[in-house]
Amino acid sequence: MKAELVEIILQLCAAQNPSLPRPVLVEQRGEAQLYGRGGPLDSLGLVSLIVEVEAAVEDRFGQSVVLADERALSQHRSPFRTVDALADYIVAMLAERSVPPTP
């Protein structure tokens, strides 16, 4: 699942790159930086990307996720720093969803 998510995120980054002041270096694959500490995205670029990733996750996995919320922003290590980190964060979120509620 993660590999597929990385692919989806990279594709969306590539599509957005022409309209960004600094492009995401998609050739670095999962290690490509996104937001914060030298990452190319500013907050507007991040918001646009996340909106599209959310839509793509819903299309592909049939689950709606909210990636930008207080929880994401308060993580010790930001889930938005690299493509890998974002993919991991989504995998964890979807896994959490699939655990049946404790009786």
């Binding site: 907050s43 991040l46 918001v47 996340i50 930008a68 207080e70 994401a72 922003l73």
Partner: peptide, 8 residues
């Protein structure tokens, strides 16, 4: 409403 930019 959006957590990152307040609104989008």
């Amino acid at each position: 409403p959006n957590a990152i930019t307040g609104n989008l």
